[in-house]
Nucleic acid binder design. Structure first.
Lengths: 206, 206, 206, 206
DNA sequence: AATGAATGAGGATTCATTCAT
DNA sequence: GATGAATGAATCCTCATTCAT
């Protein structure tokens, strides 16, 4: 398991670090969403976070660290939320459940998702790898569920298909965040979710 | 129909404009793919294109114009290629055909797609609107095919579904460009295409 | 009264702003005099002022701001100095006094005057208006003195004449700055002053 | 007598040179008045003049040459016009006549005057000297007239006074061009002329 | 003689980062 | 720990000038 990319800080107090980083991430998401990573300045981030540029740099080493913290925090939040899913035992309902949960998370964190996917390419190499790993983890949640369904015979898929469909599920969810400008006019998140569930289950032969 | 966003040039010779812009776009895609729009400098673009910074600015007004030209050219190319599809008369084969064609285009233009979707947010407002319009046009190609199939009774879908699935088809194609890093390990473009076709047709109840 | 054109700064410490701007203005006058506004580069200004280009831009928004600050500071200095004149009660001596004072100021600030009059056309619209207002204020000082003399009967002039002569007094003073290259060979400032006073008083029928 | 500053050209046909330069000067005055020497580009000058940038450079060596040609042409025009004055024999009427003539010229060529005085500092050293010489020549016209009046006893002035007053006459005329923004509201050129003549004659004790 | 495409030095401005207080 | 003034490398863009056609 690759080690987590570390962000150096010169502050000792762990609680303070937690608090400041939280402020920082909130500020950054707001700004990155509005103007993108490159156009948002560190000064603006500090100001929006409620402290000075000097203080910002007490908690990070470089601007890219901010982006990393943003991506990391989003992944963690998503992962936490998805981990709450109670999986039964390889039933289709597990899958439906997971999809509903996942789509709900995406709806809640639309801005964060858009920011993360549009800006993560700006991460330094090491951090990027870490983030791709996280992305795979997310895909893996669905992959596992699908494999569960295969084992119980609820679904008949090759392993390759299971993998592909796991990716597809992840991507179809992200669609809701990325194509808001078009989809919002036609569907509520509930409608979108149910239609996609139907489509996907059909797609997998159910 | 909204007028095309114009890029001013101080050069008069139309052929030359065509030629230089082509060089410019090729260079820009290469660089944007490598380091993104913001990290690529105008000098690098000019150099990669084979002329001087001064010459670059004879053909554009600002760096953002380069990005616009890139996006515009990609859309045009995709649109051209998709327009070559011979549509019969509302058969499922039309749909399969279109998907194969579309996926083929994406495979051919992977870099361009990634660049376009990752950087288009950096376009100035007016150009962004134009590009979103193009995106809708692309979606509309599939929407029309689906409506054709509905009319002939080949598919049974509500209009809302038709629209959503048109988006889904577009997005699932893009997946191939965006998740290369993961999908390439498991599938060839042909495998990917056929699996997705199967999935999608099942999804729509076929 | 029109509000003063404001120059934005990102520095908060008022004393520092005062100090840095003073350095900046001194440097700018030196350079503008030597090579004019357009040929003087911001880097040169910063260097001459004794700080870096980055620091310069902490105290201004654009190069034109420097010019504005120069003009503003000159007007303020002139205005301050002329305000020290003790005006009696509409006597010719008031007028003579004012002229002597004014000519003295011009002699002290020759470079500044030349810079201001040659470069102020490069000010952005808003700042230019503000500066023209200041110019009128200067004219008005003499206009008031003349009106005083008219009321006490010391001078017999129409109001139109008073206004015109006020302009003339201002301009004849500036002459000393602008035609240095010719006048310096023939006169000292004292000679120039006394001759002009004599001429002007005669001109007005005294 | 200093040799006239020469502007190199690669064109042989004298008539053509004359014609093109005339177009060029007209264009330049228009643009310099509007935006100043530095902000007017050579491309704009060429375009306004009705030919291409390449052609412009067939008739000049550098942008500064354009400015020189402008200044030179203005001086020549002024000088020509003032030379038409029929001088009698040292009478005050000669002086009045000259002033009226001069003020008329300034009124006709307001833009040219403003351009010339505001931009001439941008001339290269050699050309600047030539232009200052021209300025002295203009002053000299008045100086001669004054000396004429002194000799006939019409005026009682020291030679120093005669020189100073010659300068003053030149400057007071320019006032009309430079302070248009204020004077125009109060006076017509005729009123201005007559008031200044009265003032000046009084000033010289007449 | 006329044209206009090409050039690249030069200049204004921004902004991540540092460090003394 | 917090602050914010200072720094200067980096970058976009302009425009006078040249030269092949």
């Amino acid at each position: 398991m690759e080690k987590k990319h570390e962000v150096k800080t010169s502050v000792k107090d762990e609680n303070l670090i937690e608090k400041r980083r939280h402020q920082m991430i909130r500020a950054a998401v707001t700004l990155f969403k509005e103007k993108g990573f490159h156009r948002a300045t560190t000064r603006e981030i500090a100001k929006e976070a409620g402290f000075s540029i000097g203080t910002l740099y007490e908690y990070i080493r470089s601007k890219e660290d901010v982006l990393y913290l943003v991506c990391d925090s989003i992944y963690n939040e998503v992962h936490d939320k998805l981990s709450q899913i109670k999986l039964e035992n390889g039933t289709i309902d597990d899958l439906k459940n997971a999809i509903r949960h996942y789509y709900g998370v995406i709806d809640d964190m639309q801005d964060e998702f858009v920011v993360m996917y549009q800006e993560s390419k700006s991460l330094p190499k090491g951090a990027l790898d870490y983030v791709l790993k996280k992305e795979l983890e997310m895909m893996d949640i669905f992959h596992k569920i699908l494999k569960g369904c295969i084992q119980t015979g609820e679904l008949e898929l090759t392993d390759a298909q299971a993998k592909l469909y796991a990716h597809t599920l992840v991507v179809q969810g992200q669609m809701w965040a990325f194509r808001r400008w078009a989809l919002r006019k036609e569907f509520t998140i509930e409608q979108f979710t149910e239609l996609q569930i139907e489509f996907v289950l059909n797609g997998m032969g159910k």
